[in-house]
Design a protein around this nucleic acid. Structure first.
Ligand SMILES: [Mn+2]
Ligand SMILES: [Mn+2]
Ligand SMILES: [Zn+2]
Ligand SMILES: [Zn+2]
Lengths: 137, 137
DNA sequence: GTTAATAATGCACTTCTGTTGCATCCCTTT
DNA sequence: AAAGGGATGCAACAGAAGTGCATTATTAAC
């Protein structure tokens, strides 16, 4: 079992108190979070630091960005061995219109999408909207 | 052949000079447009008017909103008999990372997406990113 | 046709997200 | 201990989106 410190170092991210806290926050959350969510959780920290931390995590493939159609970017930790940047590994996301939460459905990969002649598909964003399991029960 | 005036009236939208102009602008464009695009095309008109006109068109199912992942909402005219609000009629959208344009692929419907037990799918947003036909040629 | 009601437009202002520049602080390395 | 580089914090900015209110235009009633 790898510690968070080891994980960060393996991705060339220098370990700081702030980064550990933000990583733990993301790990505890089961849903994708916005920058505001993180902001509210760490009121002592500056917005910019949180912003840049997430950017760093994103660049180093520790988190992936989710565009669920709410207009606000959300973030979630990548799975073990997740390669969000590789087209064939993309999973779909579910946005609940009732509670507003967005979750990764990492087991549900995006099917092959056909595009017209002349178009070259490089990436696919697929968000299913509806009622989540917590809200439908 | 139905005139624009007749179309607007059939959707309970009062015909005004501004609305006719905006509709024609959308009809001439072959790609989805942002509010800024409309703003630039009608510098005499106020932003708010354009904003509310699009909102009206959207509520009355004359245009549909497209979230292509750029963070900026785009709009495109609905096809004849398009029912964007109905789940089964959703088409996919293509966003070109080269020219930045987004187009409706109205002939390409979104395949059936399976979601886990407990989740209820009501809507699907699918955006393919890559190189469009104009840029790949 | 004049008047009253209602909708559309324009202006100002606000909120929120995302972003950058720069100074300061902290840690590491020599 | 000193120097360098990254991380953090503060301030400020840009752009999109949205709201309140006054003014103007359009429709409906008389
Ligand atoms: Mn995900
Ligand atoms: Mn479309
Ligand atoms: Zn829910
Ligand atoms: Zn293109």
């Amino acid at each position: 079992m790898e510690t968070i410190e080891q994980l960060l170092e393996s991705k060339d991210i220098r370990v700081t108190a702030m980064r550990l806290l933000i990583y733990k926050f993301l790990a505890e959350k089961e849903v994708a979070v916005t920058l505001s969510d993180i902001e509210n959780a760490f009121e002592k920290a500056d917005r910019t630091t949180l912003y840049r931390t997430i950017k760093t995590f994103e660049e180093k493939d520790i988190v992936h960005q989710i565009d669920d159609g709410t207009g606000i970017t959300k973030y979630a930790l990548c799975e073990q061995g997740c390669s969000c940047n590789i087209k064939t590994d993309l999973h779909l996301h579910f946005h609940c219109t009732n509670c507003g939460e967005t979750v990764c459905l990492t087991d549900h990969k995006i099917p092959q999408i056909k595009v017209p002649e002349g178009f070259i598909s490089e990436n696919v964003n697929l968000v299913v909207k509806g009622i989540c399991d917590k809200c439908s029960g």
